[in-house]
Nucleic acid binder design. Structure first.
Length: 738
DNA sequence: CCCTGCTAATCCACG
DNA sequence: ATTAGCAGGG
């Protein structure tokens, strides 16, 4: 091959092999920072140069962001677009929008996110007459999700589950899916389940897509679940042109059904597959790579792999243990600020953490120093009430069967159609054999309602008429959204409400949403349904416009696939990493180790790992201390500060205890026997007792709360001077005055 | 029917 | 520490 070929010149021999293996099954094992994206994009460019139509190439990435980057790089290489690059969810959504009519469903379905699904699950529970506190909707949805990951139908799940809570979940699954169908909605899991079912059950569809797509590439293959693998396997079955890329050491999504044994399945399904290994690391300093490699070597179930580097050792990896999370946050913020002052690009600085809640102290510390930052990922924006309201209105305009959205908007803003009114309308709808939304849009049918309800319902009905009249496809999403905000009276209502709640900029999020709509109108364009399908699959990560230089904050999971010059990882604490819940789910620590490994290998030049002895949790301070994983980094090229303390004994942090009354509660230590506590002077404290506190003075106990017993209860005190405080009795420092 | 104030639950990760 | 959900008064 020609070494001067621009598509090959910049590649090492391993990468060239990957690029040149154009047809047939290929497994690319690519360690962190080994130039995998480069190999994939050059491979796509090569395919196009060899005459494959761009639209016949499907590249599946893990995030929208990765998809955008890959698309841009391919376009830059070949000078033209058209390659199908997207996430599994994105591909399936557009597939279903086109193919649902084959089975008589509308392509204008609504994609339900987690909170929408919870709302629907609550209706399911109501129908089943189950108590939502006993059967938590989110738990049921998780069970259903696991069945869906395994491609089990509701009927099959019922058959497979005889045991108590599992049987309840299976019955909920049956009803939930029926209601989803009625609402013409799909959950994130459904997108893949329905797409695969269509492909498998309908030969016409299958052949259409197998002809349409001749080459399939999958990135982050270690994080695919069985359904996703079945999807790409089916799509590529006719040609066998399936190229998967991944690294088992970066498998961090087993909790959503990802199955690393897909690697083995791929090889047994494709015996002729070519295996290419990329083991040259181009990203990190030798010290960073060394520490990360020593860490991951502690995993037992792993094919040993060694990443090479030609980089200099660089500065040492630093491990710092602080007294508490405040100190930790302050130190990280100081260090980031100093780096910026010394000329570093803030965009090249990142702070990672295991759980989203850990971002808060860091955010405050950065804010206090005036350092600009952005929180990457998450759903904060799309979870805002006003954004959800507006989306619900738009959704319902497209899909009148969407009950979850309907119930959100029927009385938003308030128009006298509260719970009782809606119940009455539901009853009437049932009587008339109509769907509720249908009824709401039908003036004649509403005539029999009681005076007040009827008036409100008719007004709503009229409003729908006005909105329908002003809705014209092609005029753009933004103008319609603006009109909707006015016609429904939402703008005025929200302004008063938000101002009362103390918001300085009540239209901030709505404005951002409108900008998003305007962007859609001016770039991609399309119907309102297209727009809704797009934004349903977006996270805040994708909404981030170029907002200038800022330090990046994100979870370790979100960091996958990214790289930064400076990386700080906070909260490498006992009970946080490995996270205790991972233990409770009887998952071993290997995935948690991989998670830290992923975070570490994002760093190019500078890596700092932080832990704290004390950390605030639910507003209270708990003892944590450095994680045992920090011992596995070795000494070579690693500098430690404040990390001499012995590790805590590995007792699960969230140990469950049962008290004398049989009530279960969670805590660090075993409950102190009631016998000991009985003797304590505060044990006599009752509602109405007079008490004294060193900081707050005298006061009166107005209540005792919480599931705990004895001195572990919370006590509410109204101090003289009208200050109300809630304290844990044992640590309250109160003196009983009576 | 709407608003207020109190209570209980929350925080493991993602599209 | 924050917030969603609920009971009781206007």
């Amino acid at each position: 091959m020609d070494a001067h070929d621009p598509l090959l010149a910049s590649l090492n021999p391993e990468q060239r092999t990957a690029v040149l293996a154009l047809h047939g099954p290929v497994l690319m094992v690519a360690g962190a920072g080994s130039g995998k994206t480069r190999a994939i994009t050059h491979r796509i460019a090569m395919l196009i140069r060899e005459g494959v139509a761009p639209s016949a190439i499907l590249a599946v990435t893990f995030t929208n962001k990765a998809a955008r980057e890959m698309r841009a790089r391919v376009e830059q290489l070949v000078g033209r677009g058209g390659v199908r690059v997207g996430t599994f969810h994105g591909f399936c959504a557009s597939f279903l929008r086109e193919e649902f009519p084959v089975i008589g469903r509308s392509g204008d379905f609504t994609i339900y996110d987690e909170s929408d699904s919870v709302a629907l699950m609550k209706k399911v529970l109501a129908e089943m007459k189950l108590d939502p506190t006993q059967n938590r909707p989110a738990d049921l949805l998780r069970s259903i999700g696991r069945w869906k990951d395994k491609f089990l139908t509701p009927a099959e799940a019922v058959q497979a589950s005889t045991f108590g809570s599992e049987a309840v979940a299976a019955r909920a699954y049956v009803l939930f899916d029926a209601m989803m169908l009625k609402a013409n909605a799909c959950s994130f899991d459904d997108l893949m389940v329905q797409a695969l079912r269509l492909l498998l059950d309908h030969e016409v569809v299958r052949q259409r897509w197998q002809r349409r797509i001749t080459h399939v590439l999958v990135d982050e293959f270690q994080d695919t679940n069985p359904i996703q693998y079945a999807l790409v396997r089916t799509l590529s079955a006719a040609t066998g042109n399936l190229c998967v890329t991944g690294d088992q050491d970066q498998s961090i999504y087993s909790w959503r059904g990802a199955d690393p044994s897909n690697f083995d399945n791929f090889l047994s399904d494709h015996p002729t597959a070519r295996i290419v290994k990329l083991e040259q690391n181009y990203r990190s300093s030798a010290n960073i790579l060394g520490a990360a490699s020593r860490l991951i070597a502690h995993n037992k179930r792993r094919i040993p792999k060694t990443l090479r580097t030609e980089a200099a050792p660089g500065e040492p990896v630093r491990v710092v243990v602080f007294n508490d999370d405040q100190e930790e946050a302050a130190a990280v913020a100081d260090s980031a600020q100093r780096a910026v002052q010394e000329g570093a690009d803030p965009n090249e600085i990142a702070v990672f953490y295991r759980t989203n809640s850990l971002s808060l102290p860091v955010e405050r510390a950065l804010m206090a120093r005036g350092v600009r930052y952005r929180v990457v990922g998450g759903l904060e924006f799309f979870a805002r009430a006003e954004v959800k309201d507006l989306i619900a209105w738009l959704r319902w305009m497209v899909n009148r069967q969407d009950t979850v959205s309907f119930e959100r908007i029927i009385n938003t803003p308030p128009r006298g159609l509260g719970d009782t009114a809606v119940e009455r309308m539901e009853a009437l709808a049932l009587e008339r054999g109509m769907a509720l939304p249908q009824l709401a849009a039908n003036a004649a049918a509403l005539a029999t309602l009681p005076e007040r309800t009827r008036k409100s319902a008719l007004a709503f009905c009229k409003l729908i008429g006005v909105l329908e009249a002003s809705f014209q496809e092609g005029r753009g999403v933004r103008p319609f959204a603006e009109e909707l905000l006015e016609q429904t009276g939402y703008s005025g209502w929200w302004a008063t409400k938000a101002t009362k709640a103390g918001s300085l900029d009540p239209f901030g999020n709505i404005g951002q949403f409108l900008t998003l709509a305007a962007e859609f109108d001016s770039t991609r364009g399309g119907t309102l349904a297209d727009f809704l399908a797009d934004i349903s699959l977006l996270t805040d990560l994708d909404r981030t416009v170029d907002d200038g230089p800022a330090v990046n904050l994100m979870t370790l999971h979100t960091s996958k696939g990214l790289e930064f010059d400076h990386v700080f990882i906070v909260g490498v604490d006992y009970s946080i990493l490995p996270h205790v819940w991972a233990e409770l789910e009887s998952r071993d620590d290997e995935e948690e180790r991989r998670l830290l490994h992923v975070g570490m290998t994002r760093a190019r030049e500078r890596l700092v790992l932080c832990a704290a002895q004390l950390r605030s949790r639910f507003g209270q301070t708990v003892v944590t201390g450095p994680s045992a994983l920090l011992d596995e980094l070795g000494r070579d090229g690693v500098e430690r500060f404040g990390d001499e303390a012995p590790r805590r004994d590995p007792r699960p942090f969230r140990q469950r205890w049962r008290d004398a009354d049989g009530d279960e509660w969670a805590g660090i230590d075993a409950p102190v026997g009631d016998d000991d506590d009985e003797a304590h002077p505060l044990a006599q404290l009752r509602e109405g007792s007079r008490v004294f506190h060193a900081d707050w003075g005298c006061g009166e106990v107005t209540g005792l709360r919480g599931a705990a017993r004895g001195l572990d209860r919370k006590v509410v005190v109204l101090f003289d001077g009208n200050q109300r405080r809630t304290l844990i009795l044992r640590h309250s420092g109160l003196t009983l005055l009576d």
